[in-house]
Computed example of a mutant assay.
Amino acid sequence: MRRLLMCLAWLLCLPLVAHAGNDCREQQLPPAKVAAAAETALRAVAALEQMDAPVALVARVGTDLSRHGLVYSHAGFVVRDHAQGRWTVVHLLNECGSDRSGLYAQGLVNFFSDDLINQDLRIVWFKPDIARRLATRLQQMPRHGLHHPHYNLIARPGSRDYQNSTAWLVEMIASAIADKPIYDRTAAYAFARGDGFLPETIHVPYTQRVLGGLFTANVDFTDHPIATRLSGDYPVVTVRSIFRYLDRAGHTEHVQEWRNGHLMSVPGPA
């Protein structure tokens, strides 16, 4: 049965071409990478089916962030019984390296097929009341989606002018945690800060910005004040900062993580 499911997943995802989030050149993933993504997707589905929860947070390793001490670079909400399928990932993606973004609904195989560094995986389940409210909100999208289409990879947390994938996650989570629904991005981030969310500080030296070619359409340092740009210490919303927030604030119900295909004990956020 497991082999059959992997074969079906492989067949469904074989014609993989340009995803949002890269430069949109047509490309087809090697069968081995598609098979690895299918195996990770099956692993995730098995764990999700064991928990009676309508939504969870699922994280992947798309970029090597080890120089910043980080593991997971991207995350999304995996929604049960979504219009697109039993377990569908809803997440924000940069569109082809431009300054724009969109909200996407993808199957788990596609989510783990996006030319990742590895197939490590972490799933975080929310407390039941939060999960219920968040799932309802996600099922209603794009209505009340708290999406700002102007993308900035290094968006300042709470920025009115820019948003990235992790900032969107925090704002959506806050909108579900609050006792009353929040339909404004600024109010959502303010609630998260008041509830204990703290962004991470990422150091980007000026020389790296200039010589490292970081001036691209999807990166805008001017979203941050001059003092931040001079110091090179940028506050950003990372996947780890989201994990830490949920854990500290008591919003986490359960966590599972796999490294190199093996289920691990979870000592803390990564």
Score class of each variant (00 low, 15 high):
3 R>W: 13
3 R>Y: 11
3 R>C: 02
5 L>F: 15
7 C>D: 09
7 C>F: 10
9 A>W: 08
9 A>K: 13
11 L>G: 05
14 L>K: 04
16 L>D: 14
21 G>V: 11
21 G>C: 09
21 G>S: 10
26 E>H: 12
26 E>K: 13
28 Q>T: 07
32 A>V: 14
33 K>L: 10
36 A>V: 02
36 A>F: 01
41 A>Y: 02
41 A>Q: 06
43 R>N: 04
44 A>N: 06
44 A>L: 13
45 V>A: 05
46 A>G: 01
47 A>L: 14
47 A>K: 13
47 A>P: 00
48 L>A: 12
49 E>C: 01
52 D>A: 15
53 A>P: 00
55 V>E: 10
56 A>N: 11
57 L>K: 13
60 R>A: 04
65 L>P: 05
67 R>F: 02
68 H>G: 11
70 L>A: 11
73 S>V: 05
75 A>Q: 09
79 V>P: 00
81 D>H: 13
83 A>K: 15
84 Q>E: 15
87 W>S: 12
88 T>P: 00
89 V>Q: 05
91 H>E: 15
94 N>Y: 07
100 R>S: 15
100 R>C: 12
103 L>E: 05
107 G>S: 12
108 L>R: 11
109 V>Q: 04
110 N>A: 07
111 F>M: 06
114 D>T: 13
117 I>H: 08
119 Q>Y: 04
120 D>P: 05
121 L>H: 02
124 V>L: 12
125 W>V: 06
125 W>M: 04
126 F>Y: 06
126 F>R: 11
127 K>L: 09
127 K>S: 07
129 D>S: 10
130 I>S: 07
131 A>D: 10
135 A>P: 00
137 R>N: 00
148 H>N: 10
151 Y>F: 13
151 Y>S: 09
155 A>F: 00
158 G>I: 06
162 Y>G: 03
163 Q>G: 06
164 N>I: 11
164 N>S: 08
164 N>G: 09
164 N>D: 10
164 N>A: 11
165 S>L: 04
166 T>W: 01
166 T>L: 08
167 A>V: 10
167 A>I: 07
173 I>Y: 00
174 A>S: 09
176 A>H: 10
177 I>V: 14
182 I>P: 05
182 I>E: 11
185 R>W: 01
185 R>V: 06
187 A>H: 14
191 F>K: 13
192 A>I: 03
192 A>E: 01
198 L>R: 15
199 P>L: 14
200 E>V: 02
201 T>S: 04
207 T>W: 12
207 T>A: 11
207 T>E: 11
208 Q>P: 00
208 Q>A: 04
209 R>W: 11
210 V>H: 02
211 L>S: 05
213 G>N: 06
214 L>F: 00
224 H>N: 14
227 A>G: 04
230 L>Q: 13
233 D>F: 08
233 D>W: 08
235 P>K: 15
235 P>F: 10
239 V>C: 09
243 F>T: 09
245 Y>I: 03
246 L>V: 02
252 T>V: 13
253 E>Q: 14
256 Q>E: 12
257 E>N: 03
259 R>Q: 12
262 H>L: 13
263 L>T: 01
263 L>W: 03
264 M>S: 02
264 M>T: 09
266 V>M: 02
268 G>K: 07
269 P>V: 08
